[in-house]
Design a protein around this nucleic acid. Structure first.
Lengths: 218, 218
DNA sequence: TAGATTGTTAATCGATTAACAATC
DNA sequence: TAGATTGTTAATCGATTAACAATC
């Protein structure tokens, strides 16, 4: 393991993107790439690419570049792909179902082992081979089974209730609810605020319009 | 308009979060807040808050702090909330449906005016008062109606087909497909890669585990 | 007026980019 | 060996934090 000092979170956030682009290259039969070519492909600087990879010890070879498959596998490893992580989804509305149905997750070693909802009409319904259970059984389920990741796709009101016994039982929370969760010590959290993203888009649109009007005025 | 020089995109990305927290304060009846109190509440520095707001001219008053409602409204304005933006959703799977069904968007002035899919079984089905149309009618629809935002919640294969006539017709693209879209001049783009977010979470989990093992070894 | 807190400038910190020696 | 390209150090840039004068 050449992984030493703390890697900045901006670097970590870029890894999935490398992973995606390298996957594309791989399926296009590209076996080898230089940081320069990759930088053109991904629209970032070659310097950044080399710096990023060197946070983890460097995966290239002088004069040659990077072996795409090797690099892809290394990054997969850092991302914890194929580690066989187990997930539960709490809230089986459309968003929860869209995640449950995404086959690529399973392919990458993220297996759904439980689905929970508070709607009795859904109890017993089977999605992707997993039965929907009452949310009241969640606590008991977590004590019985080992769960790595809890995906929260329910209304924010219910989050407060289940949070106490989810924390400490899972390693990570993938939170889509509108209640922001802080990442305690020893607990990883990813807050996904879809509406924040729409607001950002809307803001960008506004700024472009503003710019256009300014030009017109001149 | 006190909006002058270009505002950095890290600041813009923070605005929706301010908007959320200010909304919470507002519904809790808080009428006035200092950058210090807000910084405790939001877990950021007071300095950053003041710097951020001053990118847009400053909304506070020395010795008093910020009027929550006023600040909330100003940020709403910057985010383009209540501007009455029209949206279409292309791809009415679970993800598309979860967005279509999110009432808060409408409340904030984002109205869905069209739903498109390539599945004939869905044609004519009405969701949130809007009929699902064949994706083949998209081009004609865009020529007829004014659409601000196109939400892409379909497989990446279909994106290439429709992208040419979406660009130039809409002001922004909210892209959930796995095909990354570059933001051309005059077109705002928000790429949302849900699987990137899961990979990041998985990576964080791995790093925490690594840290734990290191401690154990000592 | 005295106290509070902003707006804003200056200092620090971290991230990105450039440069180049090491080496395949 | 000569050419290519990395790993890594140094320079630059931008973002965050600290400090404080302005002012409500």
């Amino acid at each position: 393991m050449t992984e030493h000092k703390k890697v900045s979170s901006v670097v970590i956030r870029r890894l999935p993107r490398y992973y995606r682009y390298l996957g594309d290259l791989l399926s296009n039969g590209v076996t080898r790439i230089s940081s320069k070519d990759l930088s053109n492909f991904m629209n970032v600087t070659a310097s950044q690419i080399r710096q990023d990879f060197n946070c983890f010890g460097g995966f290239g070879q002088q004069g040659y570049g990077y072996n795409v498959e090797y690099l892809y596998n290394e990054i997969s490893g850092i991302l914890g792909i194929q580690k066989g992580r187990t997930m539960i989804i709490v809230g089986t509305g459309n968003l929860g179902m869209s995640i449950a149905g995404y086959a690529n997750f399973k392919k990458r070693g993220f297996t759904i082992v439980g689905l929970f909802d508070h709607n009795p009409d859904l109890y017993g319904k089977v999605v992707s081979g997993v039965e929907i259970m009452p949310i009241t059984q969640l606590q008991e389920f977590l004590e019985r089974k080992s769960v790595d990741i809890a995906v929260l796709t329910m209304p924010k009101e219910s989050v407060q209730e289940i949070l106490p016994y989810i924390k400490g039982r899972v390693k990570g929370i993938w939170n889509f609810s509108h209640k922001e969760i802080l990442s305690d010590d020893g607990l990883a959290v990813e807050n996904v605020h879809l509406s924040d993203s729409l607001m950002t888009l809307s803001c960008k649109i506004g700024r472009i319009e503003l710019e256009k009007n300014k030009k017109k005025d001149k």
